[in-house]
Amino acid sequence: MWRLLAGFVLLLCAADATPVGGRTVPCFGKMYHVKGELSLPFSGDSGIKEPFEVWYDLEGNRSRIDYHNGTVRTFLIGKDSDYGVIYQITPVTTETEIQAVKCFQLKGTKEDPIRPQSALPDLQGFEFEKMEDCAGVQCEVWKKVTQAGHKKNTYRLWVKRPEGSDSPAVPYHFEMEGFNTLLESHKDKYMIDYSDFSSQTESDIFTPPGAMTCHEFPDPPEEHQILANPLQDYVSTSPVSHAHRLFGPFKEKFQRKYESEKEHEERESYFLHTFRHVHSTNRAGLTYSLGINHFADRSEAEMARMTGGLIIPDQIKDDTK
């Protein structure tokens, strides 16, 4: 549903948008190209930085997202098939193949059709907070707070307002900081830095390679949405993401029973960071791949104790297949 709302807000801001706190909601236009870098500071000591590039065409009902400088290319084509298709060209490493380039696809449904994926959050519900310097540029800061259960998330988007009222706004920085009210701690955070924003793009950039045969994404099926469209979770302002919803299948698979609600929240937080680390690492096209196994809900200190202090990629591969 949120993807539909994102398109609606972009159409609205092209007309006379309703002022919020004396300012109109920033408009980024119906077509743009932008580069970004996703930072996951809580994933290991050094964190993860993942570059991506997005081409967005709302009226054409299509978008393209490349990760790690084109190592993984994702095409979201809303006009293909009955309800749209996501195509992903990605290197795959298994026990028998190393970096074999393959094509996977995910078809939309009547209940969940494929729509172009924005690189920017849906600004519905955001309010102007303040003016602030951002990389030497005076930016408007727009803020939204959401809460579900013990998860309270604060989203902020730093935007430069162009001098001409008809020109699209320019995004600079997006940040999510999650606070767990039960644990009384900030257990979640990620950031996106934007650059090279342009309101133009080439039409042929949205055409997937025609010579490749595309297959369904590999099991487990509940991860297909994350695999096909990973950026969706990071620009959505829902406090409960696709990754959060996968904690249930993980608990069932490994027969997890926690002693208290507090431990459940702790374990879910560890699982979320592990899940993001695994999928972001796999998008880098390395000579090995990671998977979710029984260590996924453990802290790094616990994993070090269980493995004698040595953590290597093989130890967090999915050893249940």
Rank of each mutant, 00 (worst) to 15 (best):
G309K: 09
E261G: 03
L76R: 03
Y32R: 00
S289C: 14
F179W: 06
P26K: 14
I226R: 00
D204E: 15
F75Y: 15
D297R: 09
C27E: 03
T320R: 09
I114S: 10
S118R: 11
A119C: 14
E50L: 14
F275W: 03
R256A: 10
H279P: 01
G149D: 05
P208S: 14
T96A: 10
F8M: 01
T109R: 13
S289V: 12
L76N: 05
A301K: 13
L182T: 09
P220F: 08
A17F: 12
H215G: 05
G136S: 07
T287L: 08
S236D: 05
K187F: 00
M212P: 09
F250P: 03
F174Q: 12
F8Q: 02
G36E: 00
Q105M: 14
G60R: 08
L11R: 08
S280C: 13
Q200G: 08
F104V: 15
M306N: 13
T93V: 11
C27D: 12
N180Q: 06
I205D: 04
E266H: 01
N229I: 02
R298E: 10
D133T: 08
G78R: 03
G60A: 06
K257G: 00
F271E: 02
F250G: 04
K317P: 00
G36V: 01
P313M: 09
G78C: 03
V141N: 10
E163R: 12
F217Q: 05
N153R: 07
T287K: 12
Q99I: 12
I89L: 07
K321C: 06
